[in-house]
Design a protein around this nucleic acid. Structure first.
Length: 594
RNA sequence: GCCCAUGUAGCUCAGUGGUAGAGCACCGCCUUGGUAAGGCGGGGGUCGGCGGUUCAAAUCCGCCCGUGGGCUCCA
């Protein structure tokens, strides 16, 4: 594919740039189509993205319907057919401003002002359409073969919520029609994997207006998975010296004034409640409670690290637009812990947490994640807690641990919390943006706010450092992730229903019931399908809806031989003695085979 | 919170101004069937809510609520 650079050079496009250039040109062609259909449109930014492209456009009071998007797409197809040449030209700054001004392109004009003094300001033109752009682009509009407008949405000019909201029109473009079809197939697959959809199909959780938005309720199936997750992590923590506590969800506002949350986190909290002259809030975090537990009695340096843990209910006032099933609600349960350490213990304790994170990921077969080490911006003296020595030491420790373990990570300068650096482990859901699953954050500030001390070897009072950490993040969110990763086909130890016994007819109901009871006695989550339906029907439901790991098909043959016919989720069947099956399934559960 | 779309039976959806529909699920009867849907019959909806336009509103308009996508936010 030939492309044209802003200086007019035409060259073969490097293979790895092809989709990017196509998408960028697709954005221009879409803008041209919009300009033809809506002559008053004023364009903002219109880049290629890693998924496709978009253009932000100010349409005045005009609202677009989905049919309008189809019309725009059809106009794009016309422009492609017209085989218009796409040609660049360069103007000096004054000429560029004049051109944009004369064309009423006020956002482009503003953008010129943001460009560095020595910037070469280039334009690309196809037919009547001119766009300020660095390129490169395809040489003719006809090179765009496979594209589709996917959706529209709002986007603030320059991503600034105080600026005007423009209409963002999104599209996708690929080098070939096959790639476009593959993309559409993947989109369908992602929709089928969405935890909200599977959650409803498998009756894992629900929500209702009357209960409140962002307030999911876990149904028996979902709560079974929940309990397994909770047991899993709590048992692991117990072996690592964590001590579990339970603290209340409502606290005085003064608690959060002490912690600083009231000053800094209030907009994420539900409004306060006044009772008998006292003011209470719903807690958004558990740190203050755990600080108070530490403060309950004096501590020697010999006791540290102290690891206080809790599966804690929290409430956060998330803006309505960000709520998403059990991935992000206004109520959730954090797999939280606060670890109190001496400065010397930061490194080893941080390592312990990182090891726990990746051991857990291994148990759950999680491999697709991104580690981010968030550091302070040393030049920003306002945002960050002013103890350079502590920061330097802590950041070096964190980096050293990650390097020693040999995990890949990216460093993000200026992304640290004001109280300390942190490690986030991020994953991508089936639909939507990356989010944080696990986190470990250092905190130099909070212990001092609660005046926490330990007595050091020299009998002097010192302030401990705190590590905030969450391994499963929130149980809710972790479950959402596991649902999407497994498509609801949970490993046996997590599955709400582990075995379903399916008698072929009522004639073998008695033997089927014996099998059922034997499994029940062995603490297997088993269900007996005693309806008078045909076996094919029962299998279909067990496989498609229940997604049960094992079906036991019980007919006359099995009864005679004292065996069970075992069918797994892939449709493979084997026959074995009932005892054999029980041993197999129990082993699988005990080892948490994934 | 903002922008757009959307809301009809438990679920998935059809129905664009004139007596609320389909498939699946549910209930009953028949069928006792061997590895992904057996047959017949039945019950079930203030068409998200409130107002408005109209002889007449699921359908048109306004506001509110929920949901989906996008943006912002996420000390």
């Amino acid at each position: 594919m030939k492309i044209i650079y802003k200086d007019g050079t035409v060259a073969e496009c490097p293979a790895e740039e092809v989709t990017h250039v196509l998408r960028h040109s697709a954005a221009h062609i879409m803008a041209q189509a919009i300009q033809r259909l809506y002559p008053n449109a004023i364009f903002g930014y219109g880049p290629a993205t890693d998924k496709g492209f978009y253009y932000d456009v100010d349409l005045g009071d005009t609202k677009l319907t989905d049919e309008d998007l189809v019309t725009i797409e059809n106009e794009m197809k016309k422009i492609v057919k017209e085989k218009l040449p796409i040609r660049p030209f360069i103007l000096n700054r004054d000429e560029a401003i004049k051109l944009m001004h004369d064309r009423g392109a006020k956002y482009k004009e503003e953008h010129i002002g943001d460009l560095p003094e020595d910037a070469i300001i280039s334009f690309y033109q196809q037919g009547d359409y001119i766009d300020m752009c660095v390129g490169p682009h395809i040489t003719y509009t006809s090179a765009l073969k496979a594209f589709k407008i996917t959706q529209q949405g709002g986007a603030y000019w320059k991503n600034d919520s105080s600026r005007k909201m423009l209409t963002r029109i999104n599209g996708v473009a690929f080098a070939t029609k096959e790639e476009l079809e593959e993309y559409e197939r993947q989109q369908e697959e992602a929709k089928a994997r969405d935890h909200r959809r599977i959650g409803q199909q498998m009756q894992l959780f629900m929500s209702d207006d009357l209960v409140g938005k962002g307030m999911p309720m876990f149904l028996p199936n979902g709560y079974t998975v929940w309990r397994e997750l909770e047991n899993y992590i709590r048992n692991k923590e117990l072996k690592l010296g964590y001590q579990h506590v339970m603290t209340p969800c409502v606290g005085t506002v003064d608690l959060y004034k002490t912690s600083g949350h009231w000053a800094h986190y209030q907009k994420n909290m539900f409004p306060p409640m006044e009772v008998e002259g006292e003011t209470f809030v719903l807690r958004p975090m558990n740190c203050p409670h755990h600080m108070m537990i530490y403060a309950n009695r004096p501590h020697s340096y010999k006791e540290l690290p102290i690891r206080i843990a809790e599966i804690a209910h929290d409430f956060r006032f998330e803006t309505s637009g960000t709520l998403k099933g059990i991935e992000r609600g206004r109520h959730f349960c954090q797999n939280d812990s606060h670890i109190f350490v001496t400065p010397e213990q930061i490194e080893s304790e941080f390592k312990g947490v990182v090891d726990l994170i990746f051991e857990t990921y291994k148990d759950f077969g999680i491999t697709d994640y991104r580690c981010v080490l968030s550091l302070r911006d040393p030049n920003d003296k306002v945002k960050y807690h002013p103890d350079d020595q502590m920061w330097d030491m802590a950041e070096a420790s964190l980096r050293k641990v990650l390097d020693d373990i040999g995990i890949e990570y990216t460093e993000e300068i200026g992304e640290a919390a004001f109280y300390g650096p942190k490690l986030d482990v991020n994953v991508k859901p089936a639909i939507g943006n990356e989010y944080t699953l696990s986190t470990c954050q250092l905190d130099f500030c909070l212990p001092a706010k609660f005046d926490l001390k330990y007595i050091d070897a020299d009998n002097s009072e010192k302030t401990p450092v705190v590590l905030h950490r969450a391994i499963l993040g929130s149980i809710d969110r972790f479950m959402a992730y596991i649902i999407e990763e497994t498509k609801g086909k949970f490993p046996t130890w997590l599955a709400p229903m582990q075995v379903k016994v399916l008698p072929v007819s009522e004639k073998t109901m008695e033997y089927a019931t014996r099998c059922y009871n034997a499994l029940l006695d062995e603490d297997v989550r088993v269900v007996l399908d005693d309806r008078s339906e045909k076996i094919g029907y029962k299998i279909r439901e067990a496989q498609q809806e229940d997604r049960v790991p094992y079906m036991l098909i019980i007919g006359a043959k099995e009864e005679e031989e004292g065996t069970v016919s075992v069918r797994n989720r892939v449709g493979e069947t084997t026959t074995m003695k009932l005892d054999e099956f029980i041993t197999k399934v129990r082993t699988e559960i005990r080892t948490r085979a994934f």
